[in-house]
């Protein structure tokens, strides 16, 4: 049975597509709480889509269990399907039907009556700004419109959990903002959302909790803020400084590393030549007087300060720190 407040329970989940092949998911555990936005973040091929596939009954696990609202995805797929909706990454709209028919037939699959499905379809088309194109064949829809229609379709049967696979990939900024607002709005209405993404800004802004997945395992699971503290050197300063033009070429990078690295409270200084007689200096360390000391050192070295900012690990830095720089 489900623990109160936990709407999805994944335990020991494993998936191997071919007997000899590698494990796409290598034993993962997590729970999704009712009413939260839960993000699965990871590089391509990390196992996000497979995990979503199992939770939505489309992939058969080779080990472990997944309960959705207390129902096992392999033993009671029909009960699971009643409670969920999926917005896929690529359009899977019914191209033989008009936009409104896509919604009404979907609701019919879930047993809604004729009048109910028409009313709800019109309401959702209104909400998603598609009312005027309700009778168009969906083949004529743009990418952003198709995306909105797929979300409207997913909401037709009022699912308790909505799964979105990379929902904003390939959308223009307006559509992306609209989608973000829609997701936050759905959460306030009590729908649980599970999304995969590799857009850090999206994950940071939307998700209550994020699981970072790599090589089929969860390597971190926390709130966005909690994840940011995982960076070893998350605190410090970054300066952009400009020097006077010198006739003689001197290695100022080494010199600056010495100057700034020697400041009290600085554990490590990274100096990078930014071109045009400018240098980007990262000072890792703590201390309230670090900015003043750095400023004074800049003056002593005969440099002008262009930028000064406090270093706080971005989610992206956390992500790269945890998953490495290798391309997949």
């Amino acid at each position: 049975m489900s623990v109160a407040g936990e709407i999805v329970q994944v335990s020991g989940l494993r998936k191997r597509y071919r007997a000899e092949g590698p494990e796409a998911v290598a034993g993962i555990d997590f729970t999704v709480r009712e009413g939260e936005i839960f993000g699965l973040l990871g590089p391509n091929g990390a196992g996000k889509t497979t995990t979503i596939g199992v939770m939505t009954t489309r992939v058969k696990p080779t080990g472990g269990t997944v309960l959705v609202d207390g129902h096992d995805v392999t033993r009671e797929p029909v009960e699971v399907k009643r409670r969920i909706a999926v917005v896929p990454q690529l359009s899977n709209l019914d191209r033989s039907l008009s936009a409104i028919e896509n919604l009404t037939f979907h609701a019919a699959y879930f047993g809604a009556g004729r009048r109910e499905r028409r009313e709800r379809a019109l309401e959702l088309l209104d909400r998603f700004g598609l009312r005027e194109r309700a009778k168009d064949q969906v083949g004529r829809y743009s990418g952003g419109m198709a995306q909105r229609l797929m979300i409207a379709r997913a909401l037709m049967h009022q699912p308790r959990i909505l799964f979105l696979d990379e929902p904003t990939t390939g959308l223009d900024p307006q559509s992306r903002l609209f989608l973000w607002e829609t997701m936050l709005d759905l959460r306030t209405r009590g729908t649980t959302l599970v999304l995969t993404t590799h857009d850090m800004a999206e994950a940071d802004r939307l998700c209550d909790r994020i699981a970072i997945v790599d090589h089929g395992s969860i390597i971190a699971l926390d709130t966005p803020r909690g994840l940011r503290t995982l960076l070893p050197a998350a605190r410090g300063l970054e300066l952009l400084v400009e020097g006077a033009e010198t006739a003689v070429a001197v290695d100022r990078t080494a010199e600056l590393t010495d100057v700034f690295g020697g400041l009290p409270g600085v554990e490590k200084a990274d100096v990078a030549d930014a071109g045009d007689e400018r240098w980007r200096i990262r000072l890792y360390g703590e201390g309230d007087d670090l900015p003043a000391a750095a400023l004074a050192a800049t003056g002593r070295a005969g440099l002008a300060l262009i930028e000064l900012r406090r270093l706080e690990g971005s989610l992206e830095e956390v992500f790269v720190h945890l998953t490495g720089r290798d391309m997949r």
Binding site: R58, K81, R82, I84, V86, N92, L93, Y109, R153
Partner: peptide
């Protein structure tokens, strides 16, 4: 996909 996700 939409049919496979129908409750059947």
């Amino acid at each position: 996909e939409d049919r496979l996700l129908a409750p059947i």
